[in-house]
């Protein structure tokens, strides 16, 4: 058994953060969920800038697209053009099902793109499948 995954969730909606937290609490993987609520904070966290100097490098990032201050696309672009950070998988996790957002995200280097299901059970299932795939099945660089 590997050590627990460090997940960085970038989402400004506390209701969604609550649902993700709730879903992950019911899986056997014991992943650590770290949450920031905008793009600036996300970059600060990844670069271990203040106030995140103690931050742990995430195993993967769950990134919402529409965020205050700096949106998810900006975070994605910067992360994937940074040689030190680009190997961190980014899962776009957003309400938007727009093809425009989907294709733009892939162009910017998103590893995958999941829409938040509108139904609670589907939402929980999606979060759990996401965690299972990246924690249990995919190999991630340290």
């Amino acid at each position: 058994m590997r050590r627990p995954a460090e997940i960085l969730l970038v989402d400004d909606n506390p209701a969604d953060v609550g649902l993700v937290c709730d879903a992950l609490a019911r899986t056997p993987y014991g992943s650590h969920l770290n949450t920031v609520s905008d793009g600036e904070e996300a970059m600060a966290y990844l670069r271990r800038a203040s106030p995140f100097s103690e931050a742990v490098r995430p195993s993967f990032v769950m990134l919402d697209l529409n965020l205050p201050r700096r949106d998810g696309r900006g975070v994605l672009a910067e992360l994937k053009s940074d040689a030190g950070l680009r190997t961190i998988p980014v899962v776009v996790f957003t309400t938007s099902g727009s093809l425009r957002d989907i294709s733009r995200s892939y162009e910017l280097g998103a590893n995958c793109y999941l829409t938040k299901p509108g139904n609670l059970n589907d939402f929980v299932a999606a979060v759990q499948a996401l965690e299972a795939f990246w924690v249990r099945y995919a190999a991630l660089p340290d």
């Binding site: 909606n13 209701a15 969604d16 649902l19 309400t95 938040k116 299901p117 509108g118 139904n119 609670l120 059970n121 939402f123």
Partner: peptide, 8 residues
């Protein structure tokens, strides 16, 4: 989605 999820 908030309404649906949290009522559920």
């Amino acid at each position: 989605r908030m309404v649906a999820s949290y009522t559920q």
